[in-house]
Design a protein around this nucleic acid. Structure first.
Lengths: 122, 122
DNA sequence: TTTATATATGAACAACCATTCATATGATAA
DNA sequence: TTATCATATGAATGGTTGTTCATATATAAA
């Protein structure tokens, strides 16, 4: 068992009431985890490019492979991550599988994120 | 040099014009990278909880350490990641360093993400 | 049936990342 | 000055993750 008394700031920091009020309002462990998981899925260059492409049009894996200029296997693996997160959906059409965005929240998130990034550049 | 002809679907997939039009509209490599980087920073449980806490109130490192119930060093390392991404800002006050959100876009992103996660749960 | 095409997936590997430990820096108090 | 407190940081480490390769599955055409 370890003593952590020295890890805590007693009177030097902001008053304990602030800490308590923040603690009451804070996100629970589960929602925070799910939120972080959502952003983690969005936090990859390949997946962002896939979503950006699907935002313009429904596309099959082969189209995405061409557009991204990368391995078909890599694209499929990332599509699976997006499918598992219910960010994209797929439907079979003959030999192909057509992918599209599953949720309008996601395009909004990408739009807002882009705006933020653009403003940071100024 | 490798032949990738067999990686491309010729006539079976969606027409080439669709691919061309999507290619013209798509995000450039640099914006896509920056966007993915932003989401990557948001895609961590500890950092989300830090942002959620700072959304409620300006706090010092010590307060955050108490609120998150984790190592001071770990909190400081994550604060650095958030500072580098210009998501939080800091100001010195005596022995303490007070952190706060640097941008209102971020709280909007967190709010929208939370909403999405909540709806997925239904 | 056999052949070709589109997609999915498991395993392996390299690169990345969050945390911990130890220590350094910087500020206040004595 | 010295001692103490709050924060920052470098190095090491264990765990995660994106890509590649090889292969499996599934559909369509011959």
């Amino acid at each position: 068992m370890q003593e952590h008394e020295h890890d805590r700031c007693e009177e030097q920091c902001i008053h304990p009431e602030v800490i308590e009020s923040v603690r009451r309002e804070m996100l629970g462990a589960v929602p925070a985890d799910e939120l972080a998981q959502l952003f983690k899925v969005l936090g990859d260059n390949t997946r962002i490019r896939i979503l950006d492409a699907l935002f313009r049009s429904e596309l099959c894996v082969c189209d995405l492979t061409t557009l991204l200029g990368m391995n078909q296997s890599a694209v499929s693996h990332q599509l699976r991550v997006l499918r598992d997160a219910r960010i994209v959906k797929s439907k079979k059409q003959g030999k192909n599988v057509l992918y599209s965005l599953d949720d309008e929240h996601i395009s909004e998130l990408v739009r807002m994120g882009s705006e933020h990034v653009r403003e940071l550049r100024r």
